[in-house]
């Protein structure tokens, strides 16, 4: 059994409902895998340096516990799957710091009450949906507008190829005609040459 220090970042929405429940989810996972919690206390409630899981604030729980080193990997996996624990950090500890157990006991006493966490600028799912809805209608309008323009263009496009096709046909016909016309002429000239050669050989 080694002594560990664990820091857990808990979701303020759960903390607001019940601190002991939020605390229990973290310590419960530890105890489930054979760890014995020495101290567990609320370290701080503060705004985060960056947004984590759409939250800008969170409550930190500091725990010192003894656990079998082989079980730490299982504890980590369970913490990853838990939604109340947004972030965690487990480190080996040389000893429980001074004053830690007193703070832990102070929290267990009946007088202790957790101040309600301040409101977070959380992006609600309803707002997101509303924004998406507006976006969708705008897109739909844009598409409709395009659709109105498009048929006119298509009609033009239909006319244009017909003209092109005519234009293409005409030169093709001309070319074929000229080729045909040229071909007999060449043949004729060749045959005349042959005839002349024949004549010359005969003469010789």
């Amino acid at each position: 059994m080694n002594l560990y220090e664990g820091m857990f970042l808990l979701d303020n929405n759960v903390v607001r409902e019940d601190w002991n429940e939020a605390k229990g989810t973290a310590t419960g996972i530890l105890e489930k895998h054979g760890a014995s919690v020495t101290t567990a206390r609320r370290w701080a409630e503060r705004s985060l340096a960056y947004t984590i899981k759409k939250r800008n604030r969170g409550t930190f729980l500091l725990v010192h516990f003894e656990a079998d080193p082989g079980n730490i990997a299982i504890i980590r996996r369970d913490l990853e799957l838990n939604e109340t624990v947004m972030r965690y950090l487990i480190l080996t500890a040389e000893g429980v710091p001074e004053g830690e157990s007193e703070l832990h006991e102070a929290e267990l006493s009946g007088d202790f009450s957790v101040p309600e966490p301040p409101e977070d600028h959380v992006v609600d799912s309803d707002e997101e949906e509303a924004e998406e809805g507006e976006g969708a209608t705008e897109e739909a309008k844009a598409e409709e507008a395009k659709a109105e323009e498009a048929p006119a263009e298509e009609a033009k496009a239909e006319e244009a190829p017909a003209e092109e096709a005519k234009a293409e046909e005409a030169p093709a016909a001309e070319e074929s005609a000229t080729e045909e016309a040229e071909a007999p002429a060449e043949e004729a000239s060749e045959s005349s040459e042959e005839q002349t050669e024949e004549k010359s050989s005969e003469e010789a």
Partner: peptide, 9 residues
């Protein structure tokens, strides 16, 4: 930084 206490950027 990992715990969101200090910024990455």
């Amino acid at each position: 930084r990992h715990m969101g206490l200090l910024p990455f950027v």
